[in-house]
Nucleic acid binder design. Structure first.
Length: 399
DNA sequence: TCTGGGGTCCTAGGACCC
DNA sequence: TCTGGGGTCCTAGGACCC
């Protein structure tokens, strides 16, 4: 009744970023609660069906594989907080991590299991807030703006509800940041990990965002950060203090201008609920570097396997593509790519293998290879393409 | 004994077309 | 003896993210 006299105030844009806490490791701890509190890392090869782990969930702690026993070229995917205390972190080479904390328990990744939990926590969110953007297995953005209760306490009430619902359904915890946009929300979700909620308003820019290192901005990576440092810029505040024109001068028109916007906390990107894949790929790092001539047979077999897996992926997901490419990493870590666009979209393993083989012929192969990858891009759904292998003669046709 | 695998987007030059 | 200007597609490399 009072609505006419007191019109609803305009809604403030409230965007949440939700990040699952040590996701892979937390999923493993649900299965192996006996490992709780111990340094645990996930990484290395894929879990094998015949491993002792796959058969015994009540395995005594003493019988779990240890990081110190690992031999290979894998990296850490996730480390629990007790493991992080030893300096072990994600993306670190396993051999290096093994030196830091040999006694840590090591579990190989089990993507199928993580995907199950990923689907479960995302479904839980969607029951509460329908505008959700997928950012990988363990992260999402959520638009709180028009969700009932999404404005209360700046989003804290809804964030609490989502945390509680996810925990009840999966037993997993997450951290949430709520802010006026995705850029700030992403930073805010890190403020109080694990299990925290951080609410950031526009007015908090100077006090809570500007003191952070520039590297914390999603989109400023190691290279850009190094260049900023060389220019005497360490924090986001220092970045914000620079003229836009100066940043454009040093980083180019698009990137420089974007950096300036980011430093001032401005970001109007919407939460995108659906997207189509652009490319699919398969790649593998060999156990040892392979030589194009001496290891020809092994290389060829791996190459064919990658093409077959990729073709399966495409078919399973219902896509065809027409730009086929390869990626090589040499023993000196240099990466080379070659690709070729064919006339007709395909998801056929032999066609992919054949075209990728042509690409491979264009690369000089003096150095030994560390990695081989195959990629299919320019994806489309088979039903949506009108293309012919060769022009059709329409002479004499009425239509 | 360094450094995985699966992605996206951007840039930049050349080809080719109108 | 000069020499357009878009627009799109293709290819290679690189930065960045999860």
């Amino acid at each position: 009744m009072l609505a006419a006299l007191h019109p609803t105030p305009p809604l403030t844009r409230r965007i949440a970023h939700l990040d699952m806490d040590a996701f892979y490791a937390s999923v493993e701890l649900l299965r192996y609660p006996q490992l709780k509190g111990l340094p645990l890392v996930i990484g290395g090869g894929r879990r094998r069906a015949d491993s002792v782990l796959a058969q015994r969930e009540d395995l005594p702690v003493a019988e779990f594989p240890r990081l110190g026993d690992y031999v290979g070229r894998g990296v850490i995917t996730t480390a629990t907080y007790p493991a992080r205390a030893f300096g072990v972190g994600s993306a670190m080479g396993m051999m290096k991590a093994a030196k830091l904390c040999p006694q840590a328990i090591l579990l190989p990744v089990d993507f199928d299991e993580y995907r199950r939990f990923s689907r479960a926590f995302k479904a839980t969110i969607l029951e509460i807030a329908p505008l959700m953007e997928d950012r990988g297995v363990d992260e999402v953005y959520i638009d709180f703006t028009e969700v009932p209760g999404g404005q209360r306490e700046g989003g804290r009430v809804l964030a609490r509800l989502i945390q509680k619902s996810i925990f009840e359904r999966t037993g997993l915890t997450c951290s949430i940041g709520v802010a006026p946009n995705k850029l700030i929300a992403k930073m805010a979700s890190e403020f109080d990990k694990p299990g925290g909620i951080s609410i950031v308003h526009e007015a908090d820019l100077e006090s809570r965002i500007w003191p952070l290192p520039a590297r914390k901005i999603n989109g400023i990576g190691p290279k850009a950060d190094a260049r900023l440092q060389a220019l005497g810029i360490t924090t986001i505040g220092e970045l914000a203090a620079k003229e836009r024109a100066w940043l454009v001068e040093h980083f180019g028109r698009a990137y420089g201008a974007w950096m300036h916007e980011a430093a001032w906390g401005r970001d109007s990107r919407p939460v995108v609920t659906e997207s189509e894949p652009v490319s699919m790929s398969r790649e593998t790092t060999f156990d040892r570097d392979l030589h194009a001539v001496r290891d020809r047979a092994a290389l060829s077999a791996i190459f064919t396997q990658l093409c077959e897996k990729l073709a399966q992926d495409l078919q399973r997901k219902g896509y065809v593509g027409k730009t086929i490419g390869i990626k090589l990493r040499f023993d000196d870590f240099k990466i080379v790519t070659r690709d070729q666009t064919i006339a007709v979209h395909t998801a056929d393993a032999r066609q992919i293998r054949q075209t990728a083989g042509q690409c491979l012929k264009r690369v000089p192969l003096e150095r030994r290879l560390r990695l081989l990858g195959v990629r299919v891009g320019a994806l489309a759904r088979p039903g949506e393409i009108a293309e012919r292998a060769e022009p059709v003669d329409t002479t004499g046709q009425l239509f």
